[in-house]
Simulated scan of single mutants.
Amino acid sequence: MEGGLATEELEIELLLEALFQRFGHDFRSYDRPTLRRKLHQVMQARALNTVSSLQDRVLHDPGAGAALLRALSVQPAALFDDPEQARQLRIVLAASLRASAVPKVWLAECAGPEQAWSLAILLAEEQLHLRTEIYATVANEEMLAAASLASFPAERMEQYQESYFRSGGTAQLADYFDVQDGRATLRASLRNRITWAQYNLVTDASFNEFQLIICQRALPDFGPMLRQRVMRLFHDSLSLFGVLGLDREIADGDELAASYQPVFPHQHWYKRIG
């Protein structure tokens, strides 16, 4: 490793240790190339030349620390921003939840309120919302606080309506929302089915049994050892014949591959069979 890269690698190690010690967020096992790219983007936006200067800013400026945690965390999703995934999810909900008296769904490393709201709307359209509990977990307090106050500009509704139609929706999306002062918020009857909590996939243990676990935006950021740790956590948290929705394939050589079978060909939805 060349001198400059070796120095930067040491700086990154020190920054990640500082984030863990100062804020309690452990990015030390994240995929290093992905992490480096995100750090460089933050440095460029703040006109900083070294990772050490970023560390100094983060440790002494609370706003800079919060901004870096946001940049390293899962980026927010828009309502129905992946119509094909939503189409598949409609099928998965019916197959995985109908047999349970009180089914539970875990949105692990949830990509913001609009991802959770999309799920709540799909549950309503499958007539499952009244008995299904959604647990949406995020890694830091700031994201948790933002979720409880979330809304979006009402003028986005037309754009979201088109994505909703492409996901298989047939209703008027606006019927699921209350609009006040130009801002739209999911109706309380659906919003109340979502429990938000701070949870760290890197360090925390299994906290419930779920019939469906969805983690479709975080895994690419994880290094190999952390991915295996998280996959074991999901296995311990998923009921037999429950469904796991990922953003990567479970490879044949993965430790738990034999415990799952694909729900769809060439897609990343898996039923636990062992």
Rank of each mutant, 00 (worst) to 15 (best):
residue 150 A to W: 14
residue 158 E to A: 14
residue 151 S to W: 04
residue 136 A to G: 06
residue 132 T to V: 12
residue 160 Y to M: 02
residue 135 Y to C: 10
residue 161 Q to G: 01
residue 153 P to E: 01
residue 141 E to F: 10
residue 150 A to D: 05
residue 142 E to D: 14
residue 140 N to Y: 09
residue 148 S to K: 15
residue 158 E to S: 10
residue 135 Y to E: 08
residue 150 A to F: 15
residue 149 L to R: 13
residue 156 R to C: 07
residue 160 Y to K: 03
residue 146 A to F: 05
residue 140 N to A: 13
residue 135 Y to D: 09
residue 147 A to P: 04
residue 144 L to C: 12
residue 153 P to M: 01
residue 140 N to C: 11
residue 161 Q to Y: 00
residue 145 A to D: 07
residue 150 A to V: 06
residue 150 A to E: 02
residue 137 T to F: 07
residue 160 Y to D: 01
residue 154 A to S: 03
residue 156 R to W: 06
residue 135 Y to N: 07
residue 142 E to I: 10
residue 149 L to N: 09
residue 155 E to Q: 08
residue 156 R to T: 03
residue 155 E to N: 08
residue 156 R to I: 01
residue 159 Q to R: 10
residue 145 A to M: 09
residue 135 Y to P: 00
residue 138 V to I: 12
residue 144 L to I: 09
residue 142 E to L: 12
residue 156 R to F: 09
residue 139 A to N: 14
residue 143 M to N: 12
residue 150 A to G: 02
residue 156 R to N: 11
residue 136 A to R: 05
residue 137 T to Y: 05
residue 148 S to G: 15
residue 146 A to W: 06
residue 145 A to L: 09
residue 144 L to D: 11
residue 135 Y to M: 08
residue 141 E to V: 08
residue 160 Y to V: 02
residue 149 L to P: 00
residue 161 Q to E: 02
residue 155 E to H: 12
residue 155 E to L: 08
residue 149 L to D: 11
residue 142 E to M: 09
residue 146 A to H: 10
